[in-house]
Design a protein around this nucleic acid. Sequence first.
DNA 1: GATAGGCATTAACATTTGTTGGGGCTGCTT
DNA 2: AAGCAGCCCCAACAAATGTTAATGCCTATC
Lengths: 239, 239
Amino acid sequence: MLESLYLNLGQHDALSDAEKALLAGAMTFERHFATGQDIVASGSRPTYSTLILDGLAARYKVLENGGRQFTSLQVSGDFVDLHAFLLKTMDHGIVALSPCHVMFADHSRLRAITEQAPHLTRLLWLDTLVDGAIHREWIVAMGRRSKTSHLAHLVCELFVRLQVVQRTNGMSFHLPLSQAELADVLGLSVVHMNRVIGALRKVGVVSWANHTVTILDWHRLQEIAEFDPTYLSMTREPR
Amino acid sequence: MLESLYLNLGQHDALSDAEKALLAGAMTFERHFATGQDIVASGSRPTYSTLILDGLAARYKVLENGGRQFTSLQVSGDFVDLHAFLLKTMDHGIVALSPCHVMFADHSRLRAITEQAPHLTRLLWLDTLVDGAIHREWIVAMGRRSKTSHLAHLVCELFVRLQVVQRTNGMSFHLPLSQAELADVLGLSVVHMNRVIGALRKVGVVSWANHTVTILDWHRLQEIAEFDPTYLSMTREPR
DNA sequence: GATAGGCATTAACATTTGTTGGGGCTGCTT
DNA sequence: AAGCAGCCCCAACAAATGTTAATGCCTATC
């Protein structure tokens, strides 16, 4: 059941059976969310953290003028609001972008882990640090990359992250995002988002149809994106 | 000596004397960096984390075309690379934007803290989580705010953060950033950065000269920025 | 099988943002 | 004193991006 979590945390360092048991023991109930449903509400003070067993979700903020910005995409094996364990108050919402099967980890049990299992604590901490590293990469993409490069970078990142949790199919993966939603990731208008996707298609490095992205030329895609996966900390070493 | 660190960590939850001693014990030597010097090099694998006792620094990445993007600004009391304790490899550089007086905390001693001092561990973890929250706010600003609003938001954020560590002077604070550097924060060209600063000045909510920012109308500045400090987690509560 | 709604796509036009080039000011060096 | 470098500021033009509106293609629904 927690396979995707073990794959996610285990990519950075070995995860012992005892640690897996501790994680499993922290879980309480599970739940399904439909596409478009809020998994966590902005402003709430959850007493548990939410793990995505399967599905795609996103963190977002909404401005007064109605504009929405996604600040991260969360895939299977990701804790979407592990940070709320210590931040306490959610300053943003989390929405399901596909049907999501999730499970809840009680904060009191996470706290117990920090009291008794230092190495596992460091791995959970690390998980939130990788979140931060991804944020930084997004900031760079938004500020200094061309829009085409930004999109290419996003495709690279998602492919690699999905591969870790075995949600890719050869060089393809499922990306159930409308162009309007994608525009809220890159911070563009829908019309321009459409132009940028067209541009990337035209170069011939990806095919993109029916919510399925297929990478046709990984090497060149990586070049366009200047993608360097270092920030994802995928090397397994003592932490 | 570590007063700014205690103020920073202590804003979220009470810090005991024993915890302060543990932090002090983790510190090794101190050092001064001149404006423009790299404090931590991209790609390095530091064995210590760097605390700013006094000064302003920034995380940044450089792209192939020479473009630079700052991903965060770090003020007195901030650990600039606490994340490297677990991420191991620096995927970005850190540069001094003013003369910086820093102190180094050994990773082996930070590790000891995670083994023996769960509450302090959670506070250090929290410090990196607030980093992440700031990143998210920057993403929103870059993607969906007008440039004027983005700049106003930055001013609000810096003022509040500097106030916590007692580096403000009434409604003024020192911001030793050239407009070119500021452009690398917002992801703009220098010329447009100049236009945006002019626009904010014209509204009359701030005065900005000689690297000193004075907030003339906090309420209206906050409105323009849609600034809500929730994400900074400044409420003191058990963590 | 008619209809309505969501989505991708395109066109035309408006606005924002970048680029290039230059002027003026200050502080520093020679 | 002259020269130089860095920085702020501005103007004119170019390019990128947003806005509005329209079209066509699906698919769900009745």
